[in-house]
Write a protein that binds this DNA or RNA. Sequence first.
DNA 1: TATTTTCTCAGGGTTTACCCTGAGAGCCTT
DNA 2: AAGGCTCTCAGGGTAAACCCTGAGAAAATA
Lengths: 219, 219
Amino acid sequence: MIEKIKVHIADDHKILIDGLSALINTEDAIELVGYSLTGKKVIEWFKNNKADVLILDINMPELDGIGVLKTFKNRNVTQKTIILSGLSDPKIVQEMISLGAKGFIEKGAAGEDIIPAIKAVYRGEEYYSKDIKSSLFDLYVNESKTEEAIKSSAAIEPLTDREIDVLKLITRQLSTSEIANKLDLTIKTIETHRRNLYKKIKVKNVVGLAIYAVKNNIV
Amino acid sequence: MIEKIKVHIADDHKILIDGLSALINTEDAIELVGYSLTGKKVIEWFKNNKADVLILDINMPELDGIGVLKTFKNRNVTQKTIILSGLSDPKIVQEMISLGAKGFIEKGAAGEDIIPAIKAVYRGEEYYSKDIKSSLFDLYVNESKTEEAIKSSAAIEPLTDREIDVLKLITRQLSTSEIANKLDLTIKTIETHRRNLYKKIKVKNVVGLAIYAVKNNIV
DNA sequence: TATTTTCTCAGGGTTTACCCTGAGAGCCTT
DNA sequence: AAGGCTCTCAGGGTAAACCCTGAGAAAATA
């Protein structure tokens, strides 16, 4: 039996994972060895497992695709990655590339792209779907592999488990003292978590937190 | 050869269509006879073609899923429809049902839901994925098939213009005094509007307000 | 015209959010 | 062993949110 290309898919829409899975199963040379519904779970999975290619959605709750690649980079993990993206904002494309992404497929693109993309990236090549290429992309690809791009990142620092706990309770409209009660912690601790959330998410107050939570499906 | 269930899929993400297509192809009794990437194209397609079941995404450019169903309703077209939705806002669920949708699947749900959903809806039954059901949904489904339900939509008192102004500024993370400044009103007035918003939307604090605003596209 | 709704503002109050600094304990990685 | 991160907690403070009651003026509606 020939060695198959091992693929891991990360996307918060299970139905898309199942769909891609079915697509991939039509190809003998590729097999799906795992999937994740959040960025955090991707990190967890790769601690104990290996895949040849990671297909990574950008918009995910808790920790987004950018955060995943940053985490990999910080840990000096080299993971061949194809980005799945709803929108092809050149800035984001640039950032993902500078973080090591080797492929880029728009969700609006045809599903047929996925198989050649996996194969190309697996071989060490790069792959970009037409929409990406024909957008402003070409202008950036050559200059984008610098360190600066990483720093100017608009992305959000990854939230810790505790912070997510607190954020979830905040969105349930609980006050700081109520949260402290529920988690058996002091008010001061919860206040610290709140402050850290403000800093990380870069918002002014609890309203920004709530909006972030809803938009990122943490509710 | 046995008659297959003819399905049309509408979603602005081609990759999801291709994925679902692959999923559906694993089932002999169902075949994909067409797809659309925008709401407008759905309308066009159904002018000259027929499908037994329509799988319809809500978020689409040009004309969204709600618009599609409204168009069908205006033209007295009865089309068995399954809604594909990223979020399960009860209000939207309710509206889609009153517009004739017979099935409802969250994108976060498992892909295995899709086949039984198609079969159920084809047989004239209804189908809702677990996430939808287990949300506040059950409370609404029985009362929502009347014209009245559309008017009394989700039971929230209508907001006044001023209240919406204030709510918008709140979601921009402005404080009461900042809002007062911007609108040339006193703090006391803004506080009153806030209090009325809490009552009408039935939330405890500004967090509830923010969540409501995001889910109802007031941001 | 009469009534309701909306929009405005007030006094006076409690509670909560938010900001600053600092710090110890445990865990993981280098 | 050393550095980094997470999680925990503290003192002490200001600003803001939130709650109560009451009410006048204008505009929409009956």
